[in-house]
Amino acid sequence: MPVRLVVNENNYEVDADPRRSLLAALRADCEVTSAHAGCADGTCGACTVLVDGDAVRSCLMLAVQCDGVAVRTAEGLTAGHPLRAALPGGHELCRPGLVMLAAGAMRHDGDLAADPGQMSRLLAANLCTCADHDQIKRSVVRAASLPPGASIAAIGPSDGPSPDATGP
């Protein structure tokens, strides 16, 4: 049963054993390297992508479920998206997932980006195993509030106020 995935507006025909996760199909067949398999059980959020506009764990969806549905990954953030500033060349395990978590929530709540406290509480939904988690999260929080198209230089580590507590 072939399945058509629409990832960042490109079409891919993927082999869809119905037991295959969306995450596995994205990485193997759709040229996506930003979504990572961290825990593969829904806990960490390294696999977070947008499905039909919602930030979801791609390890907890089946590829067959996404036949014809719009999927967006960090690679596909549109040119003017403020969160592009939080994506330097390389991808740490957690960063693209944090960015997509924020991107999904910002679609639902236009005021979210202006509220660093709420933004960093949201980001507590995703985990990270490296030492830079707080700094990465801060860069996502700051990028969210930037004007569209701002550059990575605008979010150096010492720039701007530190957001509130990083959640529970």
Binding site: R19, S21, A40, G42, L62, V64
Partner: peptide, 26 residues
């Protein structure tokens, strides 16, 4: 039944559950 999949998908991808058929209600 496949509803939100937030419990079932993990069981399927990890082969912990091996249903003959999934009926997706989404």
């Amino acid at each position: 039944v496949l509803a939100g999949g937030q419990s079932l998908v993990l069981e399927v991808t990890s082969r912990a559950a091996q249903p003959r058929r999934l009926v997706d209600i989404n």
